[in-house]
Simulated scan of single mutants.
Amino acid sequence: MKTKTWQIKDVAEQLQIHPQTLYYYERIGLLPTPQRTPAGYRQFTEVDIERLQFIQRAKALGFRLKEIRQLLELREQRTLTCWAVYEQLQQKIAAIEVQMLELQALKQELESLLQECHSRLGSVTMDQACTLLEESAAAS
């Protein structure tokens, strides 16, 4: 019995990703080199589709490609245990919390600049150059 296969355009359409993404994943090793037809067209199997869906889900959860590669390696070695997933999720949450703190600090800085900019609007003309960003760069 012959295994069903799909060409790159069909996979890209089915998963709603750009075909170049598939080439890239193959090039960086996230996706094994698929079999080819005698004419040289890539043939993707159900296993390839499942792997790509795993990659998409991990990306949607905020994992970087490097982290996804590690997860895939654990998955292939059949060592992607609940404990390993738990640890990966803990690390991801900790990284997100750091990013949130950094973004909050950035937001506060931007709000401060916005208030300063607003206070200057009454004393400048519409075509006058704004020096606020240069001044804030010099002060930091």
Rank of each mutant, 00 (worst) to 15 (best):
Q99E: 14
V47T: 11
R69Y: 10
R75K: 15
G40A: 07
L89C: 14
A95R: 09
L52D: 00
E73S: 08
E102F: 11
L80W: 04
I55E: 04
A58L: 03
R42A: 02
E46G: 06
G40R: 00
R51N: 05
T81A: 09
A39L: 11
L30P: 03
R36A: 07
E87S: 10
Y86H: 14
L52G: 00
P32L: 02
A94K: 15
R42M: 03
T33N: 04
A58C: 10
E26K: 00
R64F: 10
A84D: 12
P32Q: 02
L71E: 09
T45F: 00
R51Y: 02
L101G: 12
I49G: 05
L31Y: 00
K66R: 10
V98C: 13
G62K: 03
L74G: 07
E46R: 04
I28P: 00
A95Y: 10
L31P: 01
V47H: 08
P32H: 06
V47R: 03
P34Q: 06
Q77Y: 11
A95T: 12
T81H: 07
V85E: 07
A60M: 04
R27P: 02
I49V: 11
Q91H: 10
L80C: 08
R27T: 09
I49T: 07
A58T: 07
V98Q: 12
V47E: 11
L101E: 14
Q56C: 04
F44D: 01
P32N: 05
E97D: 15
E87N: 09
A94I: 15
E46V: 10
K66P: 01
L101I: 14
Q53T: 06
E97R: 14
Q91D: 12
P38L: 12
Q56M: 00
I28S: 03
L80Q: 09
Q90D: 09
Y25V: 08
Y25D: 04
K59E: 08
T37H: 04
E102G: 09
V85T: 12
A94S: 15
R69N: 08
